[in-house]
Each structure stands twice: as C-alpha cells, then as structure tokens.
Nucleic acid binder design. Structure first.
Length: 422
DNA sequence: TCTGATGATTGACG
DNA sequence: CGTCAATCATCAGA
C-alpha cells in the first residue's frame, strides 16, 4: 500500500496512478452561496487532511469522523472523480481498448485444436473474463500494491516453473506410438492444473485489489471507472504469465509431436556404411544372428544409430532373410567374400578372422536354400569368395552343427562354407 | 506414379 | 524382456 499512500500525499493534491497531479479541485461550477462555500471549504480541508495522512490513520479517523456522513461528500467526490477522470482518461485512452493479443489468440487456437485446452477452460479470454467478473462489484479504484503484486507474481512463476519441468522430463529420445497419447494427456493435465492455479491467483489478486480500492474509496475520490481500469492493468500483467504458460504448453506439444513424427513418418534410411556394418555382422553370425547387448551397443556406436534401431534392424533382417533366403543368398555370399577378404588382408593366410567373429563355432556359415545350383552360380562375388577362402585356408566340413540350434539350420543341407581354421 | 526396399510399430508368445 | 510376424509409412529408383 505504500505506493498508494505516496500517490495521494504528494503536494497535498490528488494524483492518479501514474502520479499525475490533478490540477485543481474547484472548477468553478455553479456559483455557490457564501454558506455553501464555507461548507465546501470545510470538507475540502478535511479531505486534504486525510490525504496527508497514511491510509490506516486516515481510515481509522474516518470512522469516527463525520466526513463520511457529510451531505456534500457524494457530490464533492463525484466532482473530484470527474476531474480525475478527465485528466487520466486523456492519458490512458490510447492504451485502452486494445484488441485481444493476436499471439495469445493463436496460442489459444492451437491449444484448443490439440485438445489441451478444453472448451470450458480454453480461451485466453476466460481468465480475463473471470478476473473482470470477480472484480466487477465495479466500484472504487485503487493503487496497485507493487510489493504484494510482485510477491504473488513470483509465487505463480515459481509454481509455474516447477510444473513446467514436468513437460521437460521426457528424455528427449524416441517417442513411440503408444507413448504419444499418454504424453499428450500428461501435458493436458499439467496445463489445466496450471491454468487453474493461474486463474485462481489472478482472481484472488484482482479481488484483493478491488476490495482495497473500495475501502479506499470511502476516503478518496475513486470512481468505478478507475477500478475497472485497474482491473484491466492487473489483467494485462497477468496476461504475460498466461502467455508464457500457453507458449510453453504449445512448445511441449510441438516437441512431442515432432519427435513422434520424426520417429515414424520421417524415416531415413541408414547410411551406406551403417548398413554395411550391420550386414557384415549379420552374415558373419548367420548361424546365430542374435547380437548380444554389448554387440548391439558396439554396432550402434559404429553405425551412429541407437541400440533399439540395431534391434529393429536385426529383427527385420532375420525375418526378411528367412522369407527370401534365395535372394539373400547373393548378399550373404557378397558379405562373406568381403569378410573373408578383410580377414585375409588383415591377418594373412595363417590368421584368424578379423573384425567380427567369423571363425569359431558360431558363425561364418553360408547356406543355400533349395537346390545347390544357387550356390554354383557364376556370381563374381562367389568366385571371389572361393578364391579368397582358398587363399586363407580352404574349406572344411565339420562342426557347424555345434552351434546353437538356429532357425537357419534347415537350410544348411547345402554346401556350407566354414570359416578358415588356422 | 508405381513398386520394391526399408525402418518402425504393434500384438502375441514363451 | 526379447523375438517373431504382420503391417504401416516412407524412401528411392525406374
């Protein structure tokens, strides 16, 4: 309240909210009689006295005082209010009657479209409307209590930011279909809780200020219009918070959606190198193409993709390999040749397999499907493979069946190449 | 524009 | 929980 007090005590005159000093009190209305003049002089003197006092003092005094009951008081206050109004309105008019903030409208529209802001709670105007409704006992006006206002604002901000963290708790990674709805619902809930708090705080504060103004209007010339104006000012201040809340909610929705869409709709093929690496691993572990968690992590790292993408890839690969093993054969041979070549190049004829575990009991098996003719094709890669393999130790024909039973074993009755033994 | 390839998702299953 | 099988949606080449 200190601001209010200050405003009203400067120069013993009346000031409006912006500190403008009102020019004069007696505007030379109808010429009053001498007695009347005297009366008005008295009451003005009383008002001036009160004006110079602090509010509490003034109000305490006022109760005992006859000022309130003075028959001239309503008329005088009315005149004072009118004068004040004239001065103030000319200053304020330009700022009033602003159209609703287009930005806020956009946010509202989006929130409604996303189903985050329900029709009941929705519109940005609703809080404003409520605030106005709460305030519209529509009487006296007041000074804004900055410290009180700031405290309230800080409180709301704090609650708001705490709640906001809930939006951001998502780890920033992929969002699955099944999560999408749940996360959206979560956002909706947080938003509506927040909005409720915001509305409540806004209304509480507005009501509080309005009550104070009404109280003051007993001793100060405060017109209903001024109170309305004050409500508008408060509303504008709170609108900033409202905007922030809505903006953040919109952002949260957009981020959620883009993550979701990125995951599903904006599919990108893996890079050529990544596919190479994955295929190399797959075909060199054909008898048991189930990479361990560590292997998946390693592949993910090398390929620049996530572990779950590696899992997806292997899942797809296994099923598609099985479905069309004929076709996969060529690919298998190609990667076999590659791997073997790499082994030969890196280790030499005497060495084991380089890179992935081509040797050993687990992998390095290439199988044909029905009819060995597939394998006997003149495919260059196969020839290359034969060449390489013969260089690095030739064929052997033993224990491939020692590997864990695999879904691929049924195809292993054809010629099978084993990795070279050193 | 059509079509096969491919990455992702989903529901069932052990 | 990992995998399979089916399916979706997009990519990419013809």
């Amino acid at each position: 309240m200190e601001d209010g007090q200050r405003m009203y005590s400067q120069q013993g005159g009346l000031t409006n909210m912006s500190g403008n000093v009102l020019p004069q009190y007696n505007m030379g209305q109808d010429e009053p009689s001498d007695q009347r003049k005297q009366e008005i002089g008295d009451i003005l003197q009383q008002i001036m006295t009160i004006t110079d006092q602090s509010l509490d003092e003034a109000q305490a005094r006022c109760r005992k005082h006859t000022l309130n009951c003075h028959r001239m008081k309503p008329a005088l206050f009315s005149v004072l209010c009118e004068i004040k109004e004239k001065t103030v309105l000319s200053i304020r008019n330009s700022q009033e009657e602003e159209p609703p903030d287009p930005q806020l409208m956009r946010l509202d529209n989006m929130l409604i479209a996303e189903g985050v802001a329900g029709p009941e709670k929705g519109g940005g105007s609703s809080a404003a409307a409520n605030a106005t409704a709460a305030a519209s006992g529509g009487q006296p006006d007041s000074a804004i209590e900055h410290s009180d206002y700031r405290a309230k604002l800080a409180q709301i901000r704090q609650i708001y930011h705490t709640e906001l963290e809930k939006y951001e708790q998502s780890d920033g990674s992929e969002i699955k279909n099944s999560d999408y709805e749940a996360k959206l619902a979560q956002i909706r809930q947080v938003y509506q809780t927040e909005y409720g708090k915001y509305e409540q705080a806004c209304n509480e504060f507005t009501t509080h200020v309005v009550n104070l103004l009404r109280e003051q209007s007993r001793t100060r010339p405060i017109a209903p219009k001024e109170i309305e104006r004050m409500v508008t000012i408060i509303r504008k201040k709170f609108a900033a918070i409202e905007m922030q809340l809505k903006q953040s909610t919109c952002e949260a929705v957009m981020i959620l959606r883009s993550r979701f869409l990125d995951a599903r709709r904006k599919r990108r093929n893996f890079s050529k190198q990544a596919t190479e690496l994955l295929n190399e691993y797959f075909y060199s572990h054909l008898s048991n193409p189930y990479p361990s968690e560590e292997a998946k992590e390693e592949l993910a790292r090398k390929c620049g993709i996530t572990v779950s993408q590696v899992s997806n890839w292997f899942g797809n690969k296994r099923i598609r390999y099985k479905k069309n093993i004929n076709k996969a054969q060529e690919e298998a041979n190609m990667y076999a040749a590659k791997t073997a070549a790499a082994a030969a190049a890196n280790v030499g004829p005497e060495g084991g397999a380089a890179g992935y575990n081509v040797g050993g009991g687990q992998a390095g098996m290439y199988m044909n499907l029905n009819g060995g003719d597939n394998y006997q094709s003149s495919d260059n890669s196969v020839n290359a493979l034969r060449h390489v393999i013969s260089q690095s130790g030739g064929y052997s024909s033993d224990s491939m069946h020692s590997t864990p039973a695999s879904m691929y074993e049924q195809h292993m009755n054809q010629q099978v190449l084993h990795s070279p033994r050193s």
